[in-house]
Simulated scan of single mutants.
Amino acid sequence: MLTGIPENWPNRSFSRTIQTGDLSWHVQIAGNSPVHVLLLHGTGSSAHTWGNLFTELAKNYTVIAPDLPGHGFTKNHGKKDLNLDALADKLSELREALKIEYFDHIIGHSAGATLALSYTLKNKQAKTIVGLNPSLISLPSFYHKFVAPFLNPIVTSSFFTAVLSDLLPHTKMIDSLIDSTNTKLDAEKRERYKTLFKNAHHLNGSMSFMAGTDIPGLLEQCSQIKSELTFILTEDDGWIPAPALRQVIQEFFNQAKMIEIKGGHMFHEGNEKLALELIKEALHEQGGSHVHSS
């Protein structure tokens, strides 16, 4: 039963609700290939972010795009502050509920790419992981030590998020937030983010996702990942500076392919055509032998 999803929501005809434990997932699924591709959105977003990429990829693969716990139209009736590790476990439960044995390829944007790595460390490793502006840079340690303990209880309190979600859509804050990514999004795409942030649960989920990511802990384990890795970085990313990200990738993922292009943090929404080309290339080159077999 799809409730609360606007009629004009991207790819709504592929939406379904899946129950696992305390979570009522909103998942979009398309395609009928034996090869499964998982799409993971970033903090503050939802499955809508994949737009035409979702339907284009579904021509060759079975594509699964969930709203992560606390985001979009996925309802979390249990523990709200899920860390990266717990989110990876929840994804495994979703995969089992969908009766899918294995995600062959995982494409993640921003914190979704971080989650892809965390998930693959705990499950049968994906053939390919594509990270679009992966969020692999830690917030400064002083933030975790001094600011976060003070801020998180306030920000994640239901009263605070309810008030904020009432106010946000009426201020220029969402537009400012989108502008800060240095991505050119049209009015319709901006409106979708305003729709999401009217929901206190979405705001709460976004804050928790940011707060629950232990990047140093994840990077220490990443040498165990044997998946083919492609990281796409944009030089104008206002959220994750390319020079610092490049350094982390070179240090911890020396086997990864790194592609640098022009664009902002959400370039895959701003330029779907280029994003699709780069993703297809990564999937065909690495573990896409079903495409190249002669």
Rank of each mutant, 00 (worst) to 15 (best):
K184E: 12
L185G: 03
L185P: 04
D186K: 10
A187E: 11
A187T: 13
A187N: 10
A187L: 05
A187P: 01
E188A: 14
K189V: 09
E191F: 09
R192H: 11
Y193F: 15
K194S: 15
T195H: 07
L196E: 01
K198C: 10
K198T: 15
N199F: 00
N199I: 12
A200T: 02
H202C: 04
L203I: 04
L203S: 00
N204I: 02
N204E: 06
N204L: 09
G205H: 03
G205Q: 05
S206Y: 00
M207A: 15
M207P: 03
M207C: 05
S208H: 13
F209A: 06
M210E: 02
A211I: 10
G212I: 05
G212K: 00
T213D: 00
D214H: 12
D214P: 13
D214K: 02
I215W: 04
P216A: 06
L218A: 05
L219V: 12
L219I: 04
E220M: 14
E220R: 14
Q221I: 09
S223A: 14
K226D: 12
K226I: 08
S227L: 03
E228G: 08
L229K: 10
L229Y: 09
T230S: 08
T230I: 09
T230K: 06
L233K: 08
L233F: 08
L233N: 04
L233G: 07
L233S: 08
T234P: 10
E235C: 09
E235T: 15
G238A: 01
G238W: 01
G238T: 01
G238R: 02
I240L: 14
P241K: 14
P241G: 11
P241T: 11
P241E: 07
A242L: 13
A242N: 11
A242D: 03
A242P: 09
A244E: 13
A244W: 02
A244I: 08
R246P: 04
R246D: 13
Q247P: 05
Q247D: 11
V248G: 04
Q250H: 14
F253L: 05
N254L: 11
N254C: 14
Q255M: 11
Q255D: 13
Q255A: 14
A256C: 07
K257M: 10
M258R: 04
I259D: 00
I261C: 04
G263Q: 06
G263A: 10
H265V: 06
H265L: 03
M266I: 13
M266C: 10
M266V: 11
M266T: 12
F267W: 07
F267Y: 12
E269Y: 06
N271G: 10
E272I: 08
E272W: 07
